[in-house]
Computed example of a mutant assay.
Amino acid sequence: MNQSIKSLLLCSIGILISGIATAQVDKTSELFKTLKAKDSILFKIGFNKCKVEQSAALMFDDLEFYHDSSGFSNSKKEFIEAMKSGICKEDNPEKVYRFLVEESLEVFPMFDNGELYGALQNGKHFFSTDKSMTYENSDNYALFSHLWIIEDNEWKLKRVISYNHVSKE
Rank of each mutant, 00 (worst) to 15 (best):
V166L: 12
E102N: 05
I45T: 06
I150W: 08
I161E: 11
L8W: 07
L63N: 01
K131S: 07
K44C: 01
S40H: 04
K27Q: 11
G118C: 09
M110K: 08
G114T: 00
P109Y: 02
T34S: 07
F72W: 12
N122Q: 14
K33Y: 09
I45M: 08
G86V: 02
H165V: 07
N140Q: 13
K51D: 03
C88L: 08
E151V: 05
E136G: 03
G118Y: 07
N153T: 14
M1L: 14
E78C: 04
S70M: 15
E53C: 12
F108G: 06
A82I: 02
M83Q: 09
K51Y: 02
A56M: 01
L105V: 00
E53D: 15
L116A: 13
E30M: 10
M1Y: 02
K76A: 07
V160Y: 04
L157R: 01
S7Y: 04
D139S: 14
E102R: 04
L63F: 09
S104D: 01
L58I: 05
E151S: 10
E103T: 08
C88Q: 00
I20N: 11
K95Q: 10
I15C: 10
Y97D: 03
G14T: 03
V25H: 01
S167T: 11
Y117A: 10
R98M: 15
E151D: 06
Y141M: 03
L9I: 14
D26F: 09
T134K: 12
